[in-house]
Nucleic acid binder design. Structure first.
Lengths: 211, 211
DNA sequence: GTCTATAACAGGATAGAC
DNA sequence: GTCTATCCTGTTATAGAC
């Protein structure tokens, strides 16, 4: 979307006829910051313009679908980054411990050590019920569960239990972000990341003898 | 707040001079439903009036502080109910299994089987940063951790580990509600409640031999 | 205490110059 | 592509009758 086919041209145009004052990636990134802070309804066009350094009309020029399209592209971008930096290592085929370590580093970056909320949570409640975000959010959560389950299987878990554990991990991730925001401390998120290796690599010893 | 000192009088006044068409408790309950669905910014006065069956001006008569006061009283009411029905059993002194069972029933009621979001999450992001909700939310989350920790100690956990486990449980609670909303299924919440007794009453056998 | 009507404002979105 | 200026709907909030 946007000037995908003109990304090089827009560089050449800088300071010329129609200089693109802020790159598309930078705009998306700054919009994301606002949506993550205050959610969809809480984000005003004035605030989004302020954050990007563009005027409202300029934002509408880039996103003809208005605020909704901005949130959609922000969400798509975040999901893409997540797929590249979190899901890919989890779904890889190297040593589980190393794959997990890479995913943990990415998670720490993505949530800035626990100081940034999750878009999947912040965009879950717009008045637009069953709107354009619902499907993406659901798919993203399930893809993350799948990826963790894949890793757990590689770490030796039985398929059934790997899935349950993966659901627990995604639950803990989201919960730790809620608590970090609610308590004003990043400790819950940091504790979650610190516990992750143990949760994945050390299976409970007594429970896997039944099946 | 409100007509606390006139609760009986307001009944006698019904259909007389100033009939209170909807009870205070009922108004708070219906307002809570809206805030839990769409959050603070997402809730408009028109929607709140619609949900309560009152006109906007009538709502302003009852809540002179406007929407913010409504959210404050809704939050205070929910926290009060939580203290009576969830924290009290957890902090009680009967058999841990029975106390937990009662708390679980209350949690299931409170979140309607996982179909209702948590106000502590939904009110965490208003533009009013560090606003009137932050303190209550932080205190409520910490009180819940304390109560679970108290129960874990009663169930035989060591104090340090009881606290860590309690934090994990509150994290799981919040996370399961996020996932339930995000995936459109109450399964994550129901799984959380189903796992709770095991998480509290069955301590890990291998990890408590070090200290 | 509730209502209708309306004020005062902020919000999302657009027009058109450059 | 960006800007200033503006439109118009929806929002919060108030006035005043009953």
């Amino acid at each position: 979307m946007l000037s995908r086919f003109f990304s090089d041209r827009s560089i050449m145009e800088a300071r010329l006829a129609r200089p693109q004052s802020v790159s598309d990636g930078e705009v998306i990134s700054r919009l994301a910051g606002v949506f993550r802070d205050v959610g969809y309804e809480g984000a005003s066009m004035a605030q989004l313009a302020e954050a990007t350094g563009l005027q409202k009309a300029s934002l509408y020029h880039r996103f003809r679908g208005g605020k909704q399209q901005m949130a959609e592209e922000v969400l798509a971008s975040a999901i893409g980054w997540f797929a590249d930096n979190v899901l890919r290592p989890l779904n890889g085929d190297g040593p589980p411990a190393e794959r997990l370590a890479e995913a943990i580093r990415s998670l720490n970056d993505f949530y800035d050590g626990g100081s940034k909320a999750c878009l999947l949570n912040m965009l879950s409640s717009p008045r637009i019920e069953e709107g354009p975000f619902s499907r993406s959010i659901k798919d993203a959560l399930e893809a993350l569960v799948d990826a963790f389950a894949h890793l757990c299987v590689a770490a030796g878990w039985k398929r059934e239990e790997a899935r349950r554990q993966a659901e627990r991990l995604v639950t803990m991730l989201q919960g730790s972000l809620v608590l970090s925001r609610g308590t004003g401390s990043t400790a819950p998120f940091r504790n979650f990341l610190a516990d992750l290796p143990g949760e994945v690599l050390e299976r409970p010893s007594g429970t896997d003898t039944l099946e």
